[in-house]
Nucleic acid binder design. Structure first.
Lengths: 416, 416
DNA sequence: CTCAATTTGTACATGACCTGGACTAATTAA
DNA sequence: TTAATTAGTCCAGGTCATGTACAAATTGAG
């Protein structure tokens, strides 16, 4: 009914205050303790104490005194310590596995994508391969003096987030796979509990931290692959709906009385703008057989046709763009985003699909808002979800450093 | 970017803990201090202290010792004090003004609806009338020993929530009206700052506290009047989107190539299922001229036809229901609610419109979810928004009692 | 070159608030 | 009547932010 509120004790208070200070440090680094006291409203004493704790935990560092040219004692600059703690992002997708290590400064410290035809393959084998990738990533982090605080795993399908149980992954042909258990069994325990989320949601978050960032405001990130999903991000948080199925853009009806869809409806967006549908309409056969040999899958063939000006391909893609715009218009009316980000296949096809999509969107997007939202194209590559996953770990550490204090102290060294 | 976190000091800690205890009291009342200590995890000492503070503020009361039949010292029951503090809800609508006073137990202590043809009327006059209504409500509350903690105002249109500035209210024919300023100028200042919100959002919240309540889960509340809006509620909070325009269900396209709409699109839901459109299709003329004389407006004529089995009316309403179901299918795919609540005119027309709506919804609602969400009909009357507004004030008091402590102490009586 | 002004960061006493154990109060079961 | 049991308060103790010095490190003026 109402938001549950947890009791606050002294420890909780300190944890939140650590987060407040760390937040200001990330925002303003390098920054002096005195300035932190100003902006947070804490006394200098309190800030000093909080910074000391954060420094002990390896989350911030002192950069030595900086003479500011003004008079008075020079400040010692405090900034985020990117050399101790890192986040791990993992991704399972139809044609690749990916791992990514990000330090607290969101610099990529390790990134590994391996092509793999996972469709229909034994889930245990695939997760075992992912586990090896994770081990390598953790080792690579350790080589750089980084200890991995936690991991987030991107999975392509509907899942139980807490336990990492994949309920169905239509494109993989999997159902009810205990991906989380399998993964964690083969991995050393990390300070923060592992988390699992839909690939589309994490790709959307990746856009927040590696794409146009805060400029996006509230946004809808369209991640079309085989299916078409949308990640809805408001206030830096993913909107999931009641059961985590929000953003099913692919099954919004754009053509009542159109082709029947597996979902039971007719004329779903996926039937017109899904990767297979586009390839079929463009006259490219056997869209299903994804060959990991060709880097972009069957899409590269389509792009070649488009670049050559093939009329049939152009029409197919324009048609897809138009339908996408129609579905997005519904999304805009219901969700009122600032921005639409085209990701997945649509970022590749954007040069040809976007004009039609924008026109259709403008034609049906709300009376009160005034103008339709901006439409941008994702510049992130294929492993956007792995990137977003790793960044989410970093975000959790920065957003609640207290969680690490009890466990952390990276490689350990007893105090003298 | 990340959620801003405010510094926590000792005072903040206590405020939150007061809210924790008050929350458990509302949930479990009547309840002993000892039990509160168990469920909150506080020590008995702390609970006693917090309860004492809440009692001083008039938010909870002791009901005297209750012998529970078990052995040991009998507990003194603590429960919410409904006789001291109240919330005020106000509503401006096209054909009426409403005020509603709710005590902390969410009992209605005063309710006043006056018919008024506000369409096109001078905003200042209308707000002046509302101010009088509010004054009467505050006086009526005082007569019952209640002091009004704050007010929330429901307005029909797009607005600046903080300042109560109505940007456009198409159905009233108003634009850029400083409703908040006008209202607050004529009213004594209240302990909590006034807040303003869209009528549809507040009606949706009313459903939470006076309708089926927590059973609803995440839900979409359709409030069709002249236009068709939807209030989206997740976790007890309204989802507003980036600019507060989320839930514009009326402009979701259900018939591409259909009748042109004022919003620039074609075949918007409002063109088929808006009140005017239904009346026109049912053959009832002059839908616009709302006569405040007939209690339900022109809708009663339609209902009469429907009850008589008029084929044209039945078809019109079924058609509207079907289109509504289609638009809702898009909403379900994008928002993943547990429940759809039909409110506004649709609650009146539900007996005839609902089957078609449910069928259309089932036909297009998502592949992964499995089943479409439940559909229920609002049992709240016309002033749902005023009710929801008042309940929102109550909710704020219960959710953050600390805000009142500094100011409250109702009619005052110096301690001996 | 020296001293006042200025700013940074720390030390120490103070105060707010939660905790924990002891203690009193009020019952029921034996 | 007594032991057991449960409710609620009292008081000492601990944690953490606050506020007032105060030492440290620099710039600018005379």
């Amino acid at each position: 009914m109402r938001n549950e509120v947890a009791p606050v004790r002294h420890g909780t208070m300190r944890e939140r205050n650590l987060a407040v200070v760390l937040g200001e440090v990330t925002r303003r680094q390098p920054v002096s303790r005195a300035r932190l006291a100003q902006v947070t409203g804490f006394t200098k004493t309190t800030v000093s104490s909080l910074v000391a704790t954060l420094k002990d935990a390896g989350l911030v560092k002192e950069d030595g005194p900086v003479r500011g040219g003004e008079r008075g004692r020079p400040a010692t600059a405090v900034s985020v310590n990117g050399d101790r703690v890192a986040g791990l992002g993992l991704e399972v997708n139809v044609d690749y596995l990916a791992a990514c290590v990000l330090d607290l400064g969101r610099r990529i410290r390790h990134r590994h994508i391996v092509a793999a035809a996972n469709q229909g393959r034994d889930p245990e084998r695939v997760i075992a391969a992912l586990t090896r990738l994770a081990e390598q990533a953790i080792a690579a982090a350790a080589d750089q003096g980084l200890s991995v605080a936690g991991a987030v795993v991107a999975l392509p399908g509907a899942l139980d987030r807490m336990r990492g149980r994949l309920r169905t992954a239509p494109n993989l042909g999997w159902s009810d796979v205990a991906a989380g258990e399998l993964l964690e069994a083969g991995l050393p325990p990390l300070p923060l509990p592992a988390d699992y989320d839909n690939e589309a949601n994490l790709a959307a978050l990746g856009e927040l931290w590696f794409g146009d960032g805060p400029e996006l405001g509230a946004y809808v990130h369209v991640s079309g692959e085989i299916g078409i999903g949308a990640g809805i991000v408001v206030d830096g948080r993913v909107f999931r709906g009641a059961h985590g199925f929000a953003g099913e853009l692919g099954h919004v009806v754009v053509d009542p009385g159109g082709a029947p869809c597996a979902c039971g409806g007719r004329g779903c967006l996926e039937q017109v703008a899904g990767q297979e549908a586009i390839l079929r309409a463009a006259g490219i056969a056997d869209a299903t057989a994804t060959s990991p040999a060709s880097p972009d899958g069957p899409l590269s063939a389509l792009v070649a046709l488009l670049e050559r000006g093939d009329e049939r391909a152009l029409t197919a893609v324009r048609r897809a763009g138009e339908s996408l715009g129609q579905a997005l218009a519904a999304a805009v009316n219901l969700l009122d985003p600032d921005t639409i980000v085209l990701g997945g296949v649509f970022s590749t096809l954007a040069p040809w699909a976007r004009p039609a999509a924008e026109a259709a969107l403008a034609g049906g997007a709300g009376v009160v808002r005034g103008s339709p939202p901006r439409m941008t194209v994702s510049r992130l590559g294929g492993d956007a979800a792995a990137l977003g996953a790793a960044a989410l770990v970093v975000e959790r550490v920065l957003g609640d450093p207290g969680k690490l204090l009890t466990v952390a102290r990276p490689t350990a060294a007893p105090a003298p």
